[in-house]
């Protein structure tokens, strides 16, 4: 082996970087985040139902919110007609957060886990929650 220490040093750095996710996680149990929906408002609902189905919301909530924003802010339209024909007021704070008042336990749980950083709260004021 020639220029050994330089090449070895390079390889060690390479391996250290490439395997970083392994040794920084090894043995750690993975806990799947479970967004909580036990807010007082939701608990009082007779039928626990969001504006759309759970599956739809899971995959498309970001798109829906984006559309809502465009609809309300750009077109001035504040009425959303859901797939089942029901009408909702387009409002993050007054519609969504009314039920999901537990941002930390609901939104952030998955967002943090998946490393998603929506910029909702750049403009909107996050609901006040009891500090942990």
């Amino acid at each position: 082996m020639y220029n050994g220490w330089k090449i070895l040093l390079g390889l060690i750095i390479f391996l250290a970087v490439a395997t970083f996710p392994f040794y920084s996680n090894i043995g750690k149990a993975t806990v799947k985040p479970e967004p909580k929906i036990d807010t007082p408002v939701i608990n009082e609902l007779k039928e626990k139902k969001c504006v759309e189905s759970k599956e739809f919301m899971k995959a498309e909530h970001m798109q829906l919110l984006n559309d809502w924003r465009d609809s309300a802010v750009r077109d001035g339209n504040r009425i959303y007609v859901a797939q089942d024909g029901e009408k909702y007021t387009i409002s993050l704070q007054n519609t969504c957060m009314k039920c999901h008042s537990n941002k930390k336990e609901f939104c952030d749980k998955c967002h943090n886990y998946a490393g998603a950083k929506p910029y909702c709260w750049d403009c909107h004021i996050a609901p006040k929650e009891a500090k942990k």
């Binding site: 392994f22 090894i26 043995g27 149990a29 993975t30 799947k32 995959a59 998946a114």
Partner: peptide, 18 residues
């Protein structure tokens, strides 16, 4: 729009050797 939380479960399982 696949479920990224499930994906991360899988990937975290891989890197944590579980």
């Amino acid at each position: 729009k696949i479920d990224v939380v499930s994906v991360k479960e899988l990937t975290m399982g891989l890197v944590s050797l579980n």
